[in-house]
């Protein structure tokens, strides 16, 4: 199993001299299982464009599976630029959590509406399929490839994915707030909840269930790719934005027995130099644990 990072940012792509090393494209991670195995892709931020170019060089028939965590722009905005959609040798299956009133095919169609983008669904030559799953559902996407899911704490609900293949496993968990102060789902929260106030016991219990499910999903995984957009201070100021800090990610690793944490969904305003400092801080924090920490970098890969 090989994980390839094509886009590692959250919120908005950030080109420029200050992001050349870590990368400025929005979220997209590829999981390579072998030359004749299906191609698994997690999220379709702007990073998916270059992945598409790499794939379109291939002339054999490609079985591509795109797993969407949620439809915020930074997770789907690269889709109209994904070359294999326009290739007849490709079959592409999209996955997402079932959201009532928002069929996945409608969401994808509205991303490529002609008023936003000049090419339309009629130009797609790939065979397209949509799969919507229920919360906490597991399924297989090929022989010996199992995918399981768990809900995250994020506005309009994102979900984490786990892939198991030949005794190797990875979890992709972005975007999420820690499961501590506020439940994020359908409502817009305009003012930051006060994190120093006690949490309603009923809400606390629901958050613990969510967290427990995520920890079960991550159990003994080889790698966990996790939303670490915030520092602890930023989280305390904006607990309602649906993002975590390295300390939250590390706690999940320790409780679930994950050995390698990959920091992901980097904040758009962070320069390469600032990222270096954040990573050093996180490594320091993890030095008291058995967890190895690294930060996702565009163009880099992890071989398991």
């Amino acid at each position: 199993m090989k994980l390839v990072f094509w886009g590692v940012r959250g919120s908005i792509p950030v080109p420029g001299p200050h992001t050349v090393r870590y990368g400025g494209n929005t979220s997209c991670v590829q999981v390579e299982l072998g030359p004749s195995e299906p191609i698994l892709i997690f999220d379709a931020g702007t990073g998916i464009r270059e992945l598409g170019q790499a794939l379109s060089a291939r002339t054999d028939s490609l079985d591509i599976h795109i797993f969407i965590t949620h439809a915020h722009w930074d997770h789907i905005q690269g889709l109209p630029f994904f070359d294999p959609l326009f290739k007849s040798n490709c079959s592409i299956t999209f996955y997402s959590l079932k959201r009532r009133g928002h069929a996945l095919s409608d969401v994808v169609n509205s991303v490529i509406e002609t008023r936003y983008f000049p090419l339309s669904r009629a130009d797609w030559e790939a065979r397209i399929r949509f799969v919507e799953f229920e919360n906490e559902e597991s399924f297989s996407v090929g022989s010996g490839i199992s995918v399981s899911t768990s809900r995250l704490n994020h506005p309009w609900i994102a979900n984490a994915y786990r892939v198991d293949y030949q005794n190797k496993s990875m979890v992709y968990a972005t975007d999420t707030a820690p499961f501590e102060h506020v439940i994020l789902d359908w409502d817009f929260i305009s003012r930051a909840p006060d994190v120093s106030q006690p949490v309603d016991p009923q809400i606390k219990e629901q958050l613990q269930v969510m967290r427990h499910n995520l920890i079960s999903l991550c159990k003994d995984a080889d790698v966990l790719i996790y939303d670490t957009m915030f520092t602890d201070e930023q989280y305390a100021r904006n607990p309602h934005w649906g993002h975590s800090a390295p300390s939250h990610a590390l706690a999940v690793c320790e409780e679930s027995g994950v050995r390698h944490l990959v920091m992901f969904h980097h904040a758009p305003e962070r320069s390469d130099e600032e990222m270096d400092i954040l990573v050093a801080d996180a490594v320091e924090l993890a030095s008291k644990t058995n967890v190895k920490i690294s930060a996702a970098q565009e163009g880099h890969s992890i071989l398991l």
């Binding site: 950030v14 080109p15 001299p17 050349v20 400025g24 494209n25």
Partner: peptide, 16 residues
């Protein structure tokens, strides 16, 4: 036009 292009190839003219 079209899509932002981060990376070393666009640092002089810009990728936004």
């Amino acid at each position: 036009g079209f899509i932002p292009v981060p990376g070393a190839q666009s640092v002089r003219y810009g990728g936004n």
